[in-house]
Amino acid sequence: MSEPRDAWVRWLRSIGLEDVKRVGAKAARLGALARGGFDVPEGFALTVDVLEHFLEHHGLDASSDARAFQEAPLPPEVSAPLRAALVELGGGPVAVRSSGVEEDGAAASFAGQFETVLDVRGPEALEAAVRRCWASSLGERVRLYAKRRGREVSPRMGVFVQRMLAPDAAGVVFTANPVTGARDEVLINAVRGLAERLVSGECSPDEWTVRGDEVRCVANVERSLTVEQARALALLARQVERQFGQPQDIEWALTGCRLRLLQARPISALPGPVARGPAR
Score class of each variant (00 low, 15 high):
93 P>G: 11
126 L>K: 06
167 P>E: 08
76 P>Q: 02
248 Q>Y: 04
117 V>K: 04
272 G>L: 12
183 R>I: 07
195 A>L: 07
78 V>D: 01
166 A>M: 08
92 G>L: 07
22 R>K: 05
161 V>N: 05
107 A>F: 07
226 T>L: 04
224 S>I: 05
48 V>A: 03
68 A>Q: 13
197 R>C: 09
9 V>P: 03
88 E>I: 01
90 G>Q: 08
108 A>H: 14
190 A>S: 15
149 R>H: 13
104 D>N: 11
99 S>P: 05
247 P>K: 06
213 D>A: 12
205 P>N: 13
236 L>Q: 14
253 A>K: 03
63 S>H: 01
202 E>D: 15
172 V>P: 02
159 V>L: 00
107 A>P: 03
242 R>D: 14
157 M>W: 03
157 M>K: 02
86 L>N: 06
43 G>P: 05
50 V>I: 01
55 L>W: 08
196 E>S: 07
131 R>E: 10
143 R>N: 05
77 E>D: 14
62 A>V: 09
84 A>Q: 12
219 A>I: 08
67 R>T: 15
13 R>T: 15
136 S>A: 09
71 E>I: 13
48 V>K: 01
233 L>C: 12
134 W>N: 04
59 G>T: 11
163 R>K: 14
211 R>L: 03
132 R>N: 08
83 R>D: 15
258 R>M: 12
167 P>M: 06
270 L>A: 11
38 F>H: 13
181 G>Q: 06
255 T>R: 08
151 R>E: 14
113 Q>I: 01
16 G>C: 07
147 K>M: 11
264 A>K: 05
104 D>M: 05
262 L>A: 08
77 E>Q: 10
14 S>W: 00
87 V>D: 15
73 P>E: 05
53 H>C: 00
8 W>Y: 09
153 V>K: 09
82 L>A: 02
180 T>V: 10
26 K>V: 03
102 E>R: 15
53 H>A: 04
2 S>K: 09
